[in-house]
């Protein structure tokens, strides 16, 4: 998923960004409300992690502005305020979820996944395509009896393609999902990741699962389109 993290604590933002990136998400970080609003308005994020107390606009104000503009991106609010009225205020302003600091990173990751499922529709914990099995809860990928050792970028790519099985995902869409602005993907970086993933999937002479549709993008399917 492509995530925007709006958090004024640089240390907390750095930890969350590091963890979420290792889970395969593209994470952009800004530290004030005005930039957060600008980023969220102008980029197709799947999720915004939004702190409440921010320099410039506060989190509630950013959220209201987004909703007023018709931006329906999912928003998970992060805040040190734990009073019931604060939670109610956040949810009434249009937040999808609310997490009080301090929180366990695993809980944040689980909530991010849950909101991700809302973006892509309900996902099965195990996706099977031919002899390929993707276990999203265990974050493991097997082909036949063989367990594949994938990098986080490769794992992110295959789960994204699996979430759109039967559809063609363009290079731009893949870039948006897998890379944040700090990654600055070059034009061939997606092709490179696809290539290395194919090598791992097809080792031992297994049939191709990632198919190239020239000029359109890539598709994950057990037979060519």
């Amino acid at each position: 998923m492509r995530i925007l993290l709006v958090e004024d604590s640089e240390r907390l933002a750095h930890s969350i960004q590091s963890g979420l990136r290792r889970l395969g998400h593209g994470v952009d970080v800004v530290h004030d409300g005005d930039r957060g609003l600008s980023y969220a308005r102008n980029n197709p994020y799947d999720l915004v992690l939004l702190d409440v107390m921010l320099p410039g606009r506060d989190g509630f104000s950013v959220l209201r502005a987004l909703r007023d503009d018709g931006v329906d991106v999912h928003v998970l609010m992060l805040t040190a305020r734990d009073a019931v009225e604060d939670r109610v205020h956040g949810l009434q302003a249009g937040a999808d979820d609310y997490l009080v600091k301090p929180f366990a990173f695993d809980e944040l990751a689980a909530r991010v996944d849950a909101l991700g499922r809302r973006v892509r529709g309900p996902a099965l914990p195990v996706v099977t395509i031919g002899d390929l099995k993707i276990d999203t809860s265990a974050r493991s990928v097997t082909r036949g009896e063989r367990v594949l050792d994938l990098s986080r970028r490769e794992y992110a790519l295959i789960t994204y393609l699996a979430s759109r099985r039967g559809e063609t995902a363009s290079r731009i869409e893949i870039e948006d999902q897998l890379y944040d602005e700090d990654s600055l993907p070059m034009s061939n970086v997606v092709a490179s990741t696809v290539c290395s993933l194919r090598e791992k999937l097809e080792s031992g002479g297994a049939p191709r699962l990632i198919h190239t549709r020239r000029g359109l993008g890539y598709m994950l399917a057990d037979s060519p389109p």
């Binding site: 907390l12 969350i16 590091s18 929180f103 990173f105």
Partner: peptide, 15 residues
């Protein structure tokens, strides 16, 4: 003032 550094500690140690 108390929760933010705690959150920083927790997130850093968890990750």
């Amino acid at each position: 003032e108390l929760r933010t550094p705690l959150a920083e500690l927790r997130a850093a140690s968890d990750v």
